[in-house]
Design a protein around this nucleic acid. Structure first.
Lengths: 173, 173
DNA sequence: TAGGTTTGTTTCAAACTTGAACCAAGACCC
DNA sequence: GGGTCTTGGTTCAAGTTTGAAACAAACCTA
C-alpha cells in the first residue's frame, strides 16, 4: 500500500499544532510548577476530583477521564497522597478497587492554584481566539477524541498492534 | 484582580483539547515506539535534520525548532548518537557550539518509519477533519505559537516569573 | 465449586524530562 | 590585556513516565 503523504496544508497544520501544544503545555506546566508545586496533570487530578460527587473517584474512572494509563495515575496519586492533597480509600463494593478522595487541604491548594492557571490558559490561548475559533477548537478535538476512543469502531482499523485498548470502565454499582 | 473564569464554551473547548492531544500524543508515541523504537520527539529530531541543508543543525537551532529545552535535546541527541542515527560534530566558527548531523543509517531508519507515522497522523487526525478544519487548526495554533514566542511582546505581560525565556537563536554566521 | 479468565490496581526497572548548576568560549568595555 | 557579561552546551540529581509483570479479587463455566 502506497503512503498517502500529507498535503502541504496538512503539513503546515501539523507543524503549527505540534509547535503550539508543546509550547502551551510547557508554559502551563511551568506556571503550575512555580505557583502550585505540581505539573499540569496533577492539577487536573485534583480538579477532576473536586467536581466529582463527594470529591471521590475510582482510580480507573479517574484514569479514563484524564486519558492516562493506570500506572501513571498510580504514581501521581501516590505523590499527591504523600502531600496530603488526597487520600486513598478502599472501595466498598469491589475489594480490588481503590478510590481517591480529595482532602480539604487538597481543595484549598486547588482553589489557590486555580486563578493563576486559568489566567495562563486565557492569556496564551483563549484571549487570542475568536469565539468562532473556540468552537472550532472544540469541534476538532472532540472528533479526534472520539476517533481515538469513542465507540466508532467503523472508521478505525481494530487490529493495529500498538493501539491502547480502552478498558470498559465501571462507575458506581 | 478578580479572576476571569472560562466561559462554558471555553471550558468545553479546553477539555476537548486536552483530552484530544493527550490521546493523540499517546497514540503517536506508541506507534513510533512500536515500529521505530523511539518516541515522537526523537523522530522529529531526525525529521528536522533530514530537511536541513547538509542534514546538519546547531543544537540550539534544533532546540528552537522543536520547541524544547537544550537539556532535553542534549539527552535525546546522546541517545540517538549511541544508536548511530546521528553524530555530533563541532562547529567550525564557534568552538562552543556543536552540530548534529544525520547519518545515512539515521536517514534509512527515518524513511522506514515515516509511512507508518504519517498513516497514524492521517488515520486519527486529518482523515477526520474537513479541509476547512485543517485550515482552522493551522490558524489557531499558529496564533498560539506566536503568542508564546513570536515577537509580539505587546499582548503578553513580560514579567511573569515562570515564563521560559526564548534565547535569541543564532544561525550560520 | 474448582479451574480458568478477566478486571482493578500496584510494582519494578528502564527510559525520559526538568531545572539548576556548571564550564568553556565569545563579546563587550575600560 | 584583563575584568565581566552573555551564550552554547553539558551534567547531575530529582522527579516523572512507560510497559511489562505481578497480584488479588471477581467472574465465568463446566
Amino acid at each position: 500500500m502506497t503512503t498517502r503523504w500529507l498535503t502541504p496544508e496538512e503539513q503546515r497544520a501539523w507543524r503549527a499544532y505540534v509547535a503550539g501544544y508543546l509550547l502551551l503545555e510547557d508554559t502551563i506546566d511551568r506556571q503550575l510548577q512555580q505557583e502550585a508545586g505540581m505539573p499540569h496533570l496533577y492539577y487536573s487530578i485534583l480538579a477532576n476530583l473536586s467536581e466529582a460527587p463527594e470529591r471521590r473517584l475510582r482510580m480507573t474512572d479517574l484514569a479514563e477521564r484524564l486519558k492516562i494509563t493506570r500506572s501513571r495515575l498510580t504514581y501521581a496519586v501516590t505523590r499527591l497522597e504523600k502531600d496530603g492533597l488526597l487520600r486513598r480509600e478502599e472501595c466498598r463494593w469491589d475489594k480490588r478497587g481503590s478510590v481517591a478522595v480529595l482532602t480539604d487541604e487538597g481543595m484549598t491548594v486547588l482553589e489557590r492554584a486555580a486563578p493563576g492557571h486559568v489566567e495562563t490558559v486565557r492569556a496564551f490561548l483563549f484571549d487570542r481566539l475568536t469565539p468562532e475559533q473556540v468552537g472550532q477548537l472544540e469541534e476538532i478535538f472532540t472528533q479526534v477524541t472520539q476517533g481515538l476512543q469513542g465507540g466508532d469502531s467503523e472508521a478505525v482499523p481494530e487490529d493495529l498492534p500498538w493501539r491502547r485498548r480502552s478498558s470498559p470502565c465501571s462507575g458506581t454499582p
